[in-house]
Amino acid sequence: MKAKIAMSTMAIAALSSMVVAGCGDPSSANTTNTASGTAAKTTSAKTVNMTLYTSGDVNVQTLWQNDLIPMYQKSHPNVHIRVVYSADGVNDTATQDRITAAEKAKKNSGFDIIDAGFVTNLAQANLLQKLNAKEIPLMSHVDAALLKQSDYEGLPYRASSVVLAYNSDFVKNPPKTLSALLTWIKDNPGKFTYNSPSSGGSGDAFVTNVVRSEMPSAQQPAMVSGQDKSLEKYWTTGLNTLHSLTPDIYRNGFYPNGNNAVLQLLANQSIWIAPVWSDMSLAALAQHQLPASVKLLQLTPPFNGGPADVGVVANSPNKAAADAFLNWLLTPPVQSIVVSEMDGYPGVEWKYMPASVQKKFASISGSFSTGISSFYSNDLHQLWQNQVAGTPSK
């Protein structure tokens, strides 16, 4: 997955103090934080103790530890939320297994709220509580399609997508559609590339978009979650299109390894246009690792992206308090902090964000598409390697 371009000294220091707790039993971790907020209230004045498990980059830990939990504390002093952080998700499998075993034994796993990549797995196994707009009213501000992806067991609280980055010093009229981008690549040889699709999501999004655009429209939805190998016959035209671009790709067909490598080529102006992750590129711009002349826009049809979901463990004894906290996460002030600190998208639809935030992200605040399932993506990556990267252009 994506990583932040740089870590602050404070964040690195926080990481070192958290790793031990993240690796251990939540009952013995030294990462307790109280939490409170302004938008939602718990149903009881008595003290409620909850544990939130989160994993990933240190910026995720910092968001919870330094921003959201202290903010929630101010208006909910009776709710204590302890954060258990696992750097880069090294404890995700163990935590998922623990929750699964506890559910089978009808016991409390010790976790209440989960913010990690395996929320999807827990939802598929029905190990999370069903969420609804009665207990979480602001769910009505979330795109229903994103809620359906987890069968209403995961709540998007932030998101990101692949967008098109271009250097406005050299590109005065950037392409705004996939078709126009393909034409631009041909007209400006050597000034575009994308990372190999198996090495990062931005390259994968470009390949997927091209291949999907050449498929019959009736077959495209099945690529999201289907498992029909016969659909792969429709990829031939798109793969041929990708192969035809090879002479016009940077250095006659150089595909960097990973998302960061593409940003570096944009930074030193070796290329002028490339697909990039929204959060990574926004962070790079904020930290002046990309020149200010680099701008971002979303294509039509859009590149794919996705949300980061939080879920409430099915056997949590603190459902009311957890629902109140999740509702608070969707309020505009909190979502503005999430967008700012994570250089990402809100969990709610853009129209519910403050006007200043909508204006700031106007060029990329449209919808994003859903990528294809791993059932298909592994095959697509291999076919791309064999038929695009591994075959000389004619």
Rank of each mutant, 00 (worst) to 15 (best):
I5S: 09
I5A: 13
A6S: 14
T9K: 12
M10G: 15
T31K: 08
T32Q: 13
A35Q: 01
A35F: 08
G37H: 08
A40L: 07
K41A: 05
T43D: 14
A45E: 11
N49L: 09
M50V: 10
L52D: 03
L52V: 14
S55L: 11
N59P: 06
V60P: 02
Q61V: 10
L63T: 03
W64D: 03
P70V: 13
Y72L: 14
V79A: 00
Y85S: 02
A87Q: 14
K104D: 12
K107S: 12
S109I: 10
D112R: 06
I113Y: 02
A116D: 01
G117F: 12
F118N: 00
Q129Y: 11
A133R: 08
K134H: 15
S140T: 15
V142I: 14
D143T: 02
A144I: 13
A145G: 13
K148C: 05
S150K: 06
L155A: 03
L164G: 07
V171T: 08
K172M: 00
P174I: 00
P174C: 02
A180V: 04
A180I: 03
L181H: 01
T183K: 14
T183C: 07
I185Y: 03
I185N: 01
D187N: 15
K191W: 07
N195K: 09
N195M: 09
N195W: 03
G203Y: 02
F206A: 02
N209Q: 11
V210L: 09
V210R: 00
V211A: 09
E214L: 12
E214P: 02
A222E: 11
M223H: 05
Q227H: 10
K229V: 15
K229A: 10
E232V: 13
K233P: 12
W235Q: 03
T237F: 02
G238W: 01
T241E: 11
L245E: 00
P247K: 09
D248A: 11
R251W: 01
L263Y: 09
N268F: 01
N268V: 02
Q269G: 09
Q269P: 05
W272M: 02
I273T: 06
I273G: 05
V276N: 00
D279V: 09
M280W: 04
A283Y: 07
L285F: 05
K295R: 05
L296D: 04
T300Y: 15
T300I: 11
P302Q: 06
G306K: 04
A308R: 07
D309R: 08
G311M: 04
V312I: 06
A314K: 04
S316E: 07
D323F: 09
L329H: 09
T331Q: 11
P332W: 10
S340V: 04
D343I: 05
G344Y: 11
S356P: 05
S356G: 01
Q358E: 05
F368A: 04
F368V: 13
S374H: 05
L380T: 02
L380N: 04
H381C: 09
Q385F: 02
N386M: 15
N386T: 07
S393W: 06
K394L: 15
